[in-house]
Nucleic acid binder design. Structure first.
Lengths: 140, 140
DNA sequence: TTGAGTGCAAAGGATTTGCAGGTTC
DNA sequence: GAACCTGCAAATCCTTTGCACTCAA
């Protein structure tokens, strides 16, 4: 695995942005001139198979990526209007995983994500720049 | 909302098959001659906006549908090897949503999904027919 | 030097949409 | 009879792939 400019930029972007982020957003975050969107796809795919990032399909079916390394137990609430993520520190999941172990499952992991309208967007409904909702279902 | 043959068939299929099921599977289940695949898409979309069915994006990004009626809110654990889903009945989420409301969020929803290796796949590692990873990577 | 990485264009699969014709209420 | 539903074809969106070229090791 070689170290290249796009890869560094992608990792930096993932580090900076804590919480799951879409490929599109990563591309914009690092600057679209740094590399092609396809490269972002390929890099994340590579990172994933190395276990460096985690992929999750949240809510709307588009996939989001997140650094695996050193992520402590915390979650996020994503604003459905502006897309901003906020941290949710505590979530009682240990008992659930224990229960599933008792059922015979191994290598248990989970995805938890909250969605809502943040206080800011409630005050300024116009600030809803980035639609988070569906893929093409976004008309809903 | 009119009652038509395809819609009846789809509801019956969803009733028969408890647990999340893909659109493709519903189409095959009701018989492909009953209606076009597009109609299944449209019906499920309609059912969803009426709150009759729930849509979830599991692990691999394809979406599955499930009857809402009568099923209390529950979650799933998806086997990372064979892709089979199993039900997880209880999950303490009310307190979390209350906490987020206190933070000023509204219209709160959430996604919870568990992953693991099911007991069967632990015994027969060869039974891993269905790769769960990618989405059109499913040609693999 | 040399093979992994990249860009560009194009393919591919899932889902949605437009429109004309059929069906339910 | 009118509005809703459907089928078919085509459009879209997201993601992956093919291929020639570039660059890190």
């Amino acid at each position: 695995m070689r170290i290249t400019k796009p890869r560094i930029a992608i990792i930096e972007s993932l580090t900076r942005h804590e919480g799951p982020i879409s490929i599109e957003k990563i591309h914009q975050d690092i600057g679209t001139e740094v590399c092609d969107l396809v490269t972002v796809y390929r890099c994340l795919s590579a990172f994933e198979s190395l276990g460096m990032v985690r992929r999750s399909y949240l809510h709307n079916g588009t996939c989001l990526y997140e650094l695996t390394l050193g992520t402590p137990r915390h979650y996020h609430i994503v604003c459905k209007a502006c897309g901003k993520t906020d941290r949710v520190d505590y979530f009682p999941v240990e008992s659930m995983e224990r229960m599933l172990q008792d059922r015979g499952y191994t290598q248990i992991s989970h995805v938890v994500e909250f969605f809502g309208i943040c206080p800011t967007c409630q005050k300024n409904p116009e600030s809803r720049q980035t639609s988070i909702s569906g893929r093409r279902t976004s008309r809903a």
